[in-house]
Design a protein around this nucleic acid. Structure first.
Lengths: 211, 211
DNA sequence: TGTACATCAGTGAACGCGCGTTCACTGATGTAC
DNA sequence: TGTACATCAGTGAACGCGCGTTCACTGATGTAC
């Protein structure tokens, strides 16, 4: 009791907004944005309804803030794929292959089941949001596309493939397999599905450029 | 005017339920299940609210019926991939490759932008539904998995691959790329993304078994 | 061929509950002089 | 070091609207005899 009291005291002060966003993300990934009520968020965080409206102008403002928060974390994931692999390898192909392997391992080691992708959830409810939020969503996927696409261009120079496939599609395939893997992992309640899709993606890239 | 009147008259009688399901699917894919109101559906179809409750016991019954309807159409798609390719080829690998090519072409030829996958939408809102509906959802993906998995076993016997990847994951990759491709196609508003992902999948399968 | 009854495909009015939002107010903390 | 004021992070009560659901009823069509 004393422990939890002291543990609670430090974060309780200033991060109510962050805790609201965290509770909102969990709830939205479970039942969608419209079905997530402000009421349940303030109960989870322990403030009153008016307290919520101190932090967010309205519910749309909450959605925008959620998306921005998610995009930051998402960009860190992509950067991690490239950075950590390249620290170990000079070759752009092998750096990427190592990065994807580390990414798959990270996904497999998650303590709980991966809760899903906010961008996917929002995209299947996009009529609830204004254009600004839809633009943010497109931006988050454009980041994946550009990062992988430019890497494939570099790799193709060093390892010119014979019979190369559509490289833009190959770049989009990363995000597509993450999204698809998350959905299958959720539906089957099997956390191994997503990392295995990533390893297939890695295998495909290897076959394309190491022919 | 006369044309449309006669065209409307025949279907108007008995298919109110079907038209409710169609309107519901369109609305749910645009804003999610909870944000889709019974009110907007009856306006779209032209009946009163009580008329809705003649066709469905409650809103959860609507969801279950939507899922069942979607699964039937979805199973037809999968069967189409295998049947039409196999009509042209005896070899199980080339039959599948042809089927995937036809599938990609069909997706590219859709008049409007593909509206999305109801199973994906439901999976990201599954806390709204009871276990029966979640089970239906898993069943629909299991159908993809089993159909592709058993085909890969047959192909592997005729074309034993050296260095074969995880074949169950390769089977799941079909559904994963469809789901991911739909999401990217939606976010970027680019209908060419999904068919191009299918062609990459086809290319990957070719590389695996034609090594 | 006509009548009695059952089923189909709805109508119309009413309900209570929960939701997002507003508004006036407040105690604690930070800053200027 | 003390006082005045501003900002921060909320509280509490009230609002109106839309939602899903219920219930008694109805006109048209189908079926049995």
């Amino acid at each position: 009791m004393v422990q939890s009291a002291t543990l609670e005291k430090t974060p309780k002060r200033h991060d109510t907004r962050e805790r609201l966003l965290e509770a909102a993300e969990r709830a939205v990934l479970a039942k969608g944005f419209h079905a997530t009520s402000i009421e349940e968020l303030i109960v989870a965080v322990g403030i009153t309804k008016s307290g919520f409206f101190y932090h967010f102008r309205d519910k749309n403002d909450l959605a925008r803030s959620m998306m921005q928060r998610y995009m930051r974390a998402d960009a860190d994931v992509v950067e991690g794929i490239f950075r950590r692999g390249d620290e170990l390898h000079d070759d752009p192909l092998h750096g990427l292959l190592v990065g994807l392997k580390l990414f798959a391992e990270m996904l497999g080691d998650l303590p709980e089941h991966h809760p899903g992708c906010l961008a996917a959830s929002f995209c299947y409810q996009d009529q609830l949001f204004d254009q600004a939020i839809r633009d943010l969503n497109a931006e988050s996927f454009q980041f994946w596309r550009k990062r992988f696409r430019s890497r494939f261009d570099v790799i193709a120079k060093r390892h010119p493939p014979e019979d190369a496939p559509d490289l833009e599609a190959l770049a989009d395939m990363a995000a597509a397999l993450v999204e698809g893997g998350l959905i299958l992992g959720r539906v089957f309640q099997d956390p191994s599905i997503l990392p295995r899709q990533i390893l297939l993606y890695r295998d495909y890239i290897r076959r394309v450029f190491q022919s």
